[in-house]
């Protein structure tokens, strides 16, 4: 096991280099760089910027060096966890990430929990009543939900359920209200929850289809096994057969899916966070892209690459943990 994990960690390195190198190369090769953008803005304000200052600025961000050297310098700083300062506001990138990443991770974890709570029972029920009206109706409904564009749904939810134009059930955006600081913990917690309802709905409904279909397929596979027939013929109640004997064995792939869902959700948070003005990493990334903030773009690319790789590894390890038939070190 230990050997396997070390091997996998080593194999992650080239993937990580590949992703960060391509991102860095792309940012550097793009026509026009940040200094020109900033120089252009400054010259509007206070007359032309001298070439000397532009050169200084370029040197500061390593733009005067060839791509490979610039990348190597970035990598060396990265190894020492030095992500540099954001070009936009001069704050350290690490602190910006530290503020935004927990928000996105909280949102993603809540989303995953909601997806599992709703779609796993749905998958079991549809598998038990296979081909019934309930089964077909549910699968069509989930199919429709899966095809609804999330930015459209977010827009409609905001218009009709928030802000007070039609209904004023939820706040328009953000994750907290403006507090004076005297409110109790529960008031704050309730307020936080109220802010999260619409974003969580937007993030979850598309995931139901995938997971409940997956659960259904796994259940159907298990339910035809001989030991299920045995359990039934022993006279166990149908409920016990389904929940204890069948479901526990179809759980294996469900557990592993969880690890790969997290990075996907973080990647998909750009739109939802922009629409609901949630100060998470997706919105930070979107703003960084708009202002060509290379240190921030690089930091987000490397962090999401790292999370994806960690998620895949975690999924494989969990697979072995929950299913004793799987041996990771290749000695079958």
């Amino acid at each position: 096991m230990k050997k396997y994990i070390i091997k996998r960690l080593l194999l992650m390195l080239p993937t990580f280099f590949g992703i960060t190198l391509v991102t860095y190369g792309m940012v550097r090769l793009a026509p026009g760089d940040y200094t020109q953008l900033k120089a252009g803005m400054d010259s509007l304000k206070q007359g032309a910027l001298s070439q000397e200052i532009i050169d200084q600025e370029r040197a500061l961000y390593g733009l005067d060096k060839p791509i490979i050297i610039g990348y190597a310098e970035w990598l060396w700083k990265f190894v020492r966890l030095d992500f540099g300062d954001s070009r936009k506001d001069g704050k350290p990138v690490l602190s910006r990430i530290g503020e935004t990443l927990p928000v996105t991770i909280t949102l993603s974890v809540i989303t995953i929990v909601v997806i599992y709570i709703i779609s796993v029972p749905m998958g079991i029920l549809t598998a038990v009543r296979k081909d019934s009206l309930f089964d077909r109706g549910t699968s069509l409904l989930l199919f429709i939900l899966y095809s609804l564009p999330s930015f459209w749904v977010a827009l409609l939810l905001l218009t009709y359920l928030a802000g007070g134009e039609y209904l004023d059930l939820f706040p328009l955006g953000g994750i907290t209200s403006d507090w004076t600081g005297n409110e109790g913990f529960f008031t704050k917690a309730a307020d936080f929850m109220r802010h999260l309802v619409l974003p969580v709905i937007t993030l979850t409904y598309g995931g139901f289809a995938f997971l409940s279909r997956y659960t259904r397929a796994n259940m159907l596979e298990v339910i035809n096994q001989q030991y299920i027939t045995t359990a039934r013929s022993k006279g166990l109640s149908e409920k016990r057969v389904v929940l204890v004997h069948a479901f526990r064995n179809s759980m294996v792939p469900l557990v592993t899916l969880m690890a790969s869902l997290l990075p996907a959700l973080i990647g998909g948070s750009v739109i939802v966070e922009s629409i609901f003005s949630i100060p998470g990493i997706g919105r930070l990334g979107f703003e960084a892209v708009l202002s060509r903030d290379i240190p921030v773009i690089m930091a987000i690319a490397s962090i999401s690459a790292f999370l994806t790789l960690a998620g895949i590894l975690l999924a494989d390890i969990m697979y072995a943990v929950v299913d004793p038939r799987i041996r990771l070190d290749g000695k079958a």
């Binding site: 993937t15 992703i19 391509v22 991102t23 792309m26 940012v27 990075p263 973080i266 990647g267 998909g268 750009v270 990334g285 979107f286 892209v289 773009i297 987000i300 690319a301 999401s304 690459a305 994806t308 790789l309 895949i312």
Partner: peptide, 10 residues
């Protein structure tokens, strides 16, 4: 492993 949507946006 590329964060595809973010990459496209960039």
């Amino acid at each position: 492993c590329f964060p595809t949507f973010f990459l496209i946006l960039t």
